[in-house]
Design a protein around this nucleic acid. Sequence first.
DNA 1: TATTGTTATACTCTATAACTATA
DNA 2: TATAGTTATAGAGTATAACAATA
Lengths: 164, 164
Amino acid sequence: MPVEPETARELVHRIVDLQRTLRCVASAERRQGELGVASQGVLRMIAEHGGPAVDLAGRLGVSAPVLSRHLAELESLGHVERHRDPDDRRAQLLALTASGRETVARIEEHRVERLRTYLADWDEQRAADAVVVLDQLSHALRAGARGNRAAAAPTEKEEPLAAR
Amino acid sequence: MPVEPETARELVHRIVDLQRTLRCVASAERRQGELGVASQGVLRMIAEHGGPAVDLAGRLGVSAPVLSRHLAELESLGHVERHRDPDDRRAQLLALTASGRETVARIEEHRVERLRTYLADWDEQRAADAVVVLDQLSHALRAGARGNRAAAAPTEKEEPLAAR
DNA sequence: TATTGTTATACTCTATAACTATA
DNA sequence: TATAGTTATAGAGTATAACAATA
């Protein structure tokens, strides 16, 4: 057997705690008139991957209608451009505008600065360890949720949501 | 300077990733007819702390109206009992019913089992390390958000939300 | 006056179902 | 028939404002 039940129980509690803390921090950090966190995530994903909207929804782990609404908002704000894919005229190719790139960069820098001040008494090694642990945990949970979903609906094809 | 900007940037991304993953897992795990995650959190907090509702809201990091609504739901489901505090008749003392205790235990066991299967290839040490990292991160962020809020509204008294 | 809790209202984020257009 | 995307509608979770009762 892998992890002892007692340790798993501890870990469940620490995960729930962190989740709650992140929600509190996010709402405390929210600036009036800023983009919502969901739209910020969409912007970031486009910056990193671009491409068709359907792939983006998968990476974000949200349904198509949700993405569609966020894209409509981001386009109306002038952060995103949508072009029909000439090879498949159902699909859209997404790209950031200059304003979108600037917004992504600004949000990023702000978050990095905030985290650095919050972690004022951390040393480099501790932060590096945290990066590894969080990465491993995300991967394990993502793979688990994927397998779980496949088990619940076995006829469905693989590679559902939040694939990496 | 504490953590290098590059490391902080990595950590920001890993935190956002984990947050997204947790949302996906939570929605994939959600059983039809089960309590919402918010109500589950309320139930758990009452199990751990009990006492007046106002303290509970602080620990959960939610506003009083939100807690009030969840308590109304939990009471109607027979999981929670509310009694007026004889020492301060404005306040409520909260306690779980037998059904509430049973529900908390059932949710807990289910989560622990799930996490153990997801972490099938983790060893004990890795899980223990993750517990420590998550705990440290929660504390750092919580303290940071607290300080941040005090700075934004300096006349306000201390000990705002999600105090520990 | 301040605090505890509730009700009314609104905002954010999400999902499912029904639709259009293209493949 | 199947897929990309949109619109309509609903639900979960949250917040602020206005209120009642008590301190």
